[in-house]
Nucleic acid binder design. Sequence first.
DNA 1: CTGTTAGCGCTTTCAT
DNA 2: ATGAAAGCGCTAACAG
Lengths: 335, 335
Amino acid sequence: MNIREVAKKARVSTATVSRTINEPEKVNPRTAERVRKVIEQLNFYPNTHARTLVSGRSRILGLIISDITNPFFPELVKSFEDQAVTHGREIIIGNTDYDPKRMAGCIRRMVERKVDGVAIMTSETDPQLLAELARRSIPTVLLDTAPAGPRSLTLSIDYAQGIHEAVDHLLALNHRRIAFIAGPLHLQSARARQSAFISRLQSRGITVEEDLMQTGDHRIEGGTLAMENLLKLKQRPSAVIASNDLTAIGALGVIFEAGLRVPDDISLVGFDDISFARLTQPPLTTVRVSRSDLAVTAFTALEKLVKNDADIGDETNRSELIATHLVERRSTRAI
Amino acid sequence: MNIREVAKKARVSTATVSRTINEPEKVNPRTAERVRKVIEQLNFYPNTHARTLVSGRSRILGLIISDITNPFFPELVKSFEDQAVTHGREIIIGNTDYDPKRMAGCIRRMVERKVDGVAIMTSETDPQLLAELARRSIPTVLLDTAPAGPRSLTLSIDYAQGIHEAVDHLLALNHRRIAFIAGPLHLQSARARQSAFISRLQSRGITVEEDLMQTGDHRIEGGTLAMENLLKLKQRPSAVIASNDLTAIGALGVIFEAGLRVPDDISLVGFDDISFARLTQPPLTTVRVSRSDLAVTAFTALEKLVKNDADIGDETNRSELIATHLVERRSTRAI
DNA sequence: CTGTTAGCGCTTTCAT
DNA sequence: ATGAAAGCGCTAACAG
């Protein structure tokens, strides 16, 4: 069943059926109504592939993430998908698994399926691959990565803002020995959090002890190891800020098993506000990075990029900042 | 850039290029080699939409789930996607949000995009919508739902097995007052767990007290409420089995806030083994439903269904059972 | 406002 | 083993 059958049954040409579907305002209301009836009656769905083939637009958007089982991403994916459904678009999701080879595969799939645009929400991206997209002039929205050529835009998470709030919060609670468990430092996003921590403390006149600076991997295990180191210190910290919630959860386990209590013995702050952060015991004070903000901003920007055939040029900002804020729960307390 | 350019540059017809890509064995090795060189050199990707249009096969599979932010699903999606990538397929994901209207939308999208098959991994499905798929003879794999017509197959999670193991485990630990917090009872999958609990206890000669049977909603909140009821009882249970992990986590919070301890005062067992289950304090004893098993089984079955144009007939089972097993962690203890 | 018609890029007979 | 050509279902010029 196809557009010709509909046309025949409605006694119009296929062009009129096509117009009724795509540009109803250009069709006589009565004709349109008749066509619509037939479409309904025949339960006709236009073939998107034929449509894409001739028009060059697929109404598909690509969404590339690191790993859907990383709790940072499901909410992002969901909000992005909600936007897509609302705007009559399909999305194709690619998991890179933090592997550049898989990332290349993802991009290839996106190109093959002729996506109208791609949102790359992973924290590191090979500029070569971005060049590939730019060469085909596929609109791209990036996260924490320099935009690659025209029709490309970057979203930056305001890590500093959140870390500053976290530091100030602990300072206000009279903490002075504050440790930091960083993420993997090859990531720009991890370094941004670490340096925000250091600079804020210094600007408040506190020198950061080397021992109090640990490095994790943004996973539970890294938090576990780092916290073990911290507890071995002669003078342990009274508070710890972790570069993300998973790290904080790892730290929490260690503290608990050492017979210490949060927040009574040690205050703990996370980062991201994944959904489990409010379910830990005690609920975790953390910096929220709104995944729905991120998704909506990314989608909206991408949609705008897709609509403009030309470069976005100077008229638009090439970068947008995503706010972050401290959410106080029960893992921090005054000393 | 298209297949004609490749053909011209390799001095062959477009048919030969097409064959080189799809049926290399039918092409002279030397010709094929020449064509392949040109393809590489031009960095040519075949247009999947043109391909689908003419062949009728899209190499896309649909995956419908309830809600990607429900921790049951990310691992399922990931494994399913892994399979798809391995087999050179694309997947389109649909979130129903537990809403029949959205489910209808998902199915419509799948049909529009001409998926080769659909895996519907939600727990409840409108038979009418399944009929729509059957009518278009789209292969379908269902979860805990009766198969709908030909080219359709059902996967059943062996809830009883897991619940039986959980009950036996608690019985072996000398628990006799065991409570059960059920899921929403309009779901067949929730009822299956509840009745497995009751029947196992009865077959062990223990009558189930009405008071000990609570109903939740498979979310945190339901677990919270149900556990509050349980703690109000004159004689509270020594152990609780929850219909899923989210429910158990809700219960855990309440127990903790009541000043009681798990497992010292109350043993607690969950169901699903979501990734957070091993991160609770204490780590949760729970019944594992392997999402990767589920995904791989679903994918494999779907692939088989897609390859057979005809009905699967009697040769194949119309239903497969997914095993479940107790994972003992530290939320249960002998009394 | 509506119809005619030429492709979009590919696969697939049917010849050779 | 290869090529010529038809056509998948649709959109978009163009003509009327």
